[in-house]
Computed example of a mutant assay.
Amino acid sequence: MPDRISRSILLTALLPALLLAPGASAAPVSVPTDRGTLSLPAPARRVVALEYSFVDTLLALGVRPVGAALGTQGGDRGAPPYLRPKVGGITPTGSRGQPSLEAMAAARPDLILADALVHKDSAAGFARLAPTAVFPSRRADLDELNNQTLQIGRLVGREAAARQLLADQKTLIAKARAFAKKNAPTFVAGVVTPTSFTVHTQGSFAGSFLEAVGRRNAVPVRDGQTQFETSLEGLVALNPQTLVLFTAPDEKPVTDTWAKNPLWQKLSAVKRGRVYTFNRDDWTRGRGPTALKLMTAQAIESRFLQDAAPARGYQYQP
Rank of each mutant, 00 (worst) to 15 (best):
Q73M: 05
L155A: 05
T290D: 10
S25R: 13
A133M: 01
G273W: 08
A124P: 01
K293D: 09
D34L: 07
L50N: 09
R222F: 04
S30E: 06
A79Y: 03
I112G: 01
R274W: 03
K175T: 06
P131Y: 05
G89A: 01
L10C: 00
T296Q: 03
Q169M: 08
T247H: 07
A44G: 10
T93A: 15
G214S: 11
E229C: 02
A116L: 14
F135T: 12
G88F: 03
V55E: 09
A212F: 10
I112K: 02
V275D: 05
Q298R: 04
I5H: 05
R163Y: 02
G234D: 08
A291D: 12
A161C: 14
L238P: 13
K181G: 13
L150D: 10
A21S: 13
T93N: 10
T247F: 03
I173R: 05
Q202S: 15
P41L: 01
P136D: 09
Q315A: 12
L10W: 02
K252Y: 01
D121K: 09
P194N: 03
S39T: 15
D282V: 00
P262V: 09
G94A: 01
D115N: 15
S122Y: 07
A106S: 14
A259R: 12
V191E: 06
Q317N: 15
Q317A: 15
A299T: 04
T198C: 00
K175M: 01
L243P: 10
Y52W: 10
P249I: 00
Q202G: 11
G288Q: 07
W264E: 11
N239R: 02
V87S: 02
L18I: 06
L38T: 07
Q225S: 11
G313M: 04
N279S: 13
S8N: 01
H119Q: 10
T37S: 06
A114Q: 04
A133C: 02
K293P: 01
G207M: 07
V156R: 03
L294V: 08
D281L: 15
D143P: 00
F228R: 07
L83M: 15
L129S: 05
S122D: 06
D168T: 14
R215I: 00
Y314M: 12
K182F: 02
